[in-house]
């Protein structure tokens, strides 16, 4: 029975890891060929991400987009989650539904909505439109983690502070904020990683004027193969593993996911 379970886990792990292992393999090929096992060994394709002006620009665009849009998503989610926790206002749940909706619907739909919106305004193709679009699309993630964070606050702590004479603002700054900080950081991190990887919305808002890394990979893919795609892919996997690994190291990722997914469904 135990052996059977091991075999099963191994099969799932292999299925999930196999394509990434092959990509990691071809990324160290010495020549510009798509061969596995790799011939020779070279890290030149990793250096390319930073030295080639086009890849470096795409990396820069992607990072700017992810940093800004995740921050904006948190800025939208934080007051909303706080309000829903602090006040009894059933109709305000409408905004919670609006915050969850873009994430549940197929992404093509949201992307098309943004495309028609920015085109109608005549702002189509400007970089900030992608930041706003990503922030709205990924607002679900900080909203869910923050709602979870607020729900975990022991209300008697807050009450004690209020009895001692602290007003709402002081309570928020000295009691509430430190307690929800881990949830705020995980919400930001989730939005950051997903924004970094997002293709269709970035493509439909700024795809004609600017290349982010996923757009650059897809465009390059259409003209054939360059090993830099492989090295960038490995870079992406590493960033995701690093971010989620840190969340697991410093927080309780099991609890975060136990609630995250049940809120989703």
């Amino acid at each position: 029975m135990n052996a059977l379970r091991r075999l099963y886990f191994l099969a799932v792990a292999l299925f999930l890891a196999a394509p990434l292992l092959v990509v990691a393999g071809v990324s160290v090929n010495e020549k510009q060929d798509l061969t596995f096992p790799p011939r020779g060994f070279s890290l030149a394709w990793y250096a390319q991400i930073f030295t080639d002006p086009e890849w470096r620009a795409a990396l820069f665009h992607s990072l700017t987009l992810a940093v800004c849009s995740a921050a904006l998503a948190v800025l939208i989610a934080l007051p909303l989650a706080w309000f829903l926790w602090r006040r009894i206002a059933p109709w305000a749940n409408v905004f919670q539904v609006l915050g969850l909706a873009p994430f549940i619907l197929p992404p093509v739909i949201t992307a098309l909505g943004f495309l028609s919106f920015w085109a109608t305004l005549g702002l189509f193709g400007q970089f900030f439109t992608a930041i706003v679009s990503h922030a709205i699309f990924f607002v679900t993630l900080p909203l869910v983690t923050l709602s979870l964070g607020f729900a975990s606050i022991d209300r008697s702590l807050v009450e004690a502070a209020a009895t001692m004479g602290a007003d709402d603002r002081t309570v928020a700054r000295t009691v509430v904020l430190p307690l929800i900080l881990p949830y705020l950081i995980s919400g930001y991190a989730f939005a950051f990683v997903l924004s970094l990887n997002e293709y269709i919305i970035a493509y439909m808002t700024i795809g004609f004027t600017t290349e982010t890394l996923p757009i650059k990979i897809f465009n390059a893919l259409r003209y054939g193969y360059t090993p830099t795609m492989a090295s960038v892919s490995v870079f992406f996997v590493a960033v995701a593993a690093l971010v989620f690994g840190s969340i697991a190291r410093f927080g309780d990722i099991r609890r975060l996911l136990g609630a995250l997914s049940s809120e989703d469904s």
Partner: peptide
């Protein structure tokens, strides 16, 4: 869970490229 999240967050572009390889 960390591994699953890392795969889940991967861009469709990267998944497509990895399997095409």
């Amino acid at each position: 869970l960390v591994g699953l999240l890392s795969v889940l967050s991967l861009s469709e572009v990267i998944i497509g490229f990895a399997w095409s390889t």
